[in-house]
Amino acid sequence: MIHGVLSRLLSAMVVVAGVSVLVFLLIHLVPGDPVEVMLGEGARPADRAELERALGLHQPLAMQLTDYFSGLVRGDLGESLHSRQAVAEVIAGRLPATVVLALAALAVALVLAVPLGLIAAVRPDSPWDSGAMTFSMVGVSIPNFVLGPLLILLFSVHLGWLPVSGWEGPASLVLPAVTLGTAMAAILSRMVRSALLDVLGEDYIRTARAKGLDELTIVVRHGLRNAALPVITVVGLQLGTLLGGAVITETVFAWPGIGQLTVEAIQRRDYPVLQGCILVISLAYVVINTLTDLAYGVLDPRVRIGVS
């Protein structure tokens, strides 16, 4: 168990280091001279030198990398070229909005996916099953930049129930959360269905039936609890994808989170902020995945005592 946790943490560290290097290298992918791209061709040499120094580009690559990592360790992600604020501060200001959105989307996904997957698994190959699975296929196929405007059209324009975009109180959270949560609900409902189908074929379910338990207790107490494990893994994986998808959803709804900050940084060619956003989102993803893996070990006694 201890060994497993340590090796999982170690490999997470390697990934974190790799991700950081890749993000550092991003700026060197700018075609031509990044300084020229940012300032335009007619820039004065003094301005060019200034920006080059601000980005640390006048130093050799190894030095830049060392500086970058020593900054990271101190939580220093550089300075925004646009607002001159520390990147870490800018991101910290935007992070809460994204976390709230991601959690709300997760809640929407769970509320939709668990009942759908359950109905589909209890009545496999019935109209219920095909209905639930068709919904799930539609959910995967509809991109959030289509679903978002459609929801705005229906609920904000025609029905006038919810605000169009931005932040005007808790009601503003509904449409972005549904937009972001639908794709995850679609994937999750398939996972709930297949996990539950596997479990319902087990001997202990037959035993539970044989001793006369009612169907609801069997499915929920004995079925769902055992099907929870693979589902939790997918939730962990999808929570990260949610963060990536937030970039587009936040743009649709003018949601003041880190996703919109990423797009703004690209438009302003504010590379330090862009690097910071990509780094923070990816690291959050790695941390969530690692925690999911570790949680799996805690929840499943077979993994915990190292049987399987």
Binding site: V15, V16, V19, G240, G244, V247, V263, I278, S282, N289
Partner: peptide
């Protein structure tokens, strides 16, 4: 480790 299309963006 890069979620979804974030790296592509």
């Amino acid at each position: 480790a890069f979620p979804g299309i974030l790296l592509a963006i």
